[in-house]
């Protein structure tokens, strides 16, 4: 996986430049953009990262930019920098699952902490997504017959009942069950159940770091 990157979008040259400088001093990779359109044209994350957006910008605002990223399914943890943390804006931001608000003037250490935390969240999220993807791929390796057996196994049916429902021999059931356990890389029924439930529960990993961390 790539190094984490901080994406800064601010129309104020001094502000984005100084933020970029601040981030690099703690060893973060930064990418700086003067406007939303400039950012959208270049944004293609290969690894974990964090977005730092100025809310008020000419053209597309920070919130609009984030919403468009969510719509594209490319959302990352975001920290909005604003001078006007008014209520309607916050509500709107929460709906889109934004991470943090930092009100100017802000504490620099606090911002850095938030950025690092957001990167951590994104890293975990990305790991989680990667893990889940691996599990999904294991399930996809199963044949149609093995999947039928798996379904009945997970519903708690014994082998005898499975053989009668599928109209196959108990021996065949045993063979298929052993195969699928091997393909899914589990050794016990309990492990198999947990794997399947975990996959079904989190169809989409949550973005809110706090929810994840708590």
């Amino acid at each position: 996986m790539q190094e984490p990157t901080v994406y800064i979008v601010d129309d104020d040259a001094d502000m984005r430049d100084s933020l970029g400088f601040l981030m690099t001093t703690v060893g973060l990779r930064v990418a700086i953009f003067a406007s939303a359109s400039e950012f959208l044209a270049a944004f293609a994350p290969k690894g974990p990262g964090c977005l730092v957006f100025d809310v008020r910008m000419p053209g597309m605002s920070g919130l609009d930019l984030y919403e468009s990223l969510v719509a594209r399914g490319e959302a990352m943890p975001v920290i909005f920098i604003t001078a006007f943390a008014d209520v309607p804006m916050a509500i709107r931001a929460m709906k889109s699952g934004a991470v943090e608000f930092v009100e100017k003037p802000f504490n620099r250490q606090d911002l850095l902490d938030r950025v690092l935390r957001a990167i951590q969240v994104d890293t975990q999220r990305r790991k989680l997504i990667a893990d889940r993807e691996a599990v999904r791929k294991r399930f996809q390796r199963l044949t149609k017959k093995e999947r039928d057996v798996l379904e009945l196994v997970l519903s708690g049916k014994p082998n005898k009942s499975i053989s009668s429902s599928l109209e196959i021999t108990p021996r065949a059931v045993e063979m298929r069950r052993a195969n699928l356990m091997k393909k899914l890389e589990v050794t016990s029924l309990a492990e198999l159940v947990r794997l399947k439930v975990g996959l079904d529960l989190a169809a989409e990993p949550p973005l809110n770091g706090r929810t994840m961390l708590s």
Binding site: D14, D17, S18, F21, L22, T25, A83, K104, P105, R108
Partner: peptide
């Protein structure tokens, strides 16, 4: 707010300087 922009930027640079200069091998040029 307009005044906060340059002030914030100054604080950012200053903080960055502090961090840089606190490093074991400070990047003086930066």
């Amino acid at each position: 707010h307009e005044l906060n922009q340059p002030l914030g930027a100054i604080a950012n640079y200053a903080e960055g300087c502090l961090v840089t200069l606190s490093a074991p091998e400070p990047n003086v040029d930066a």
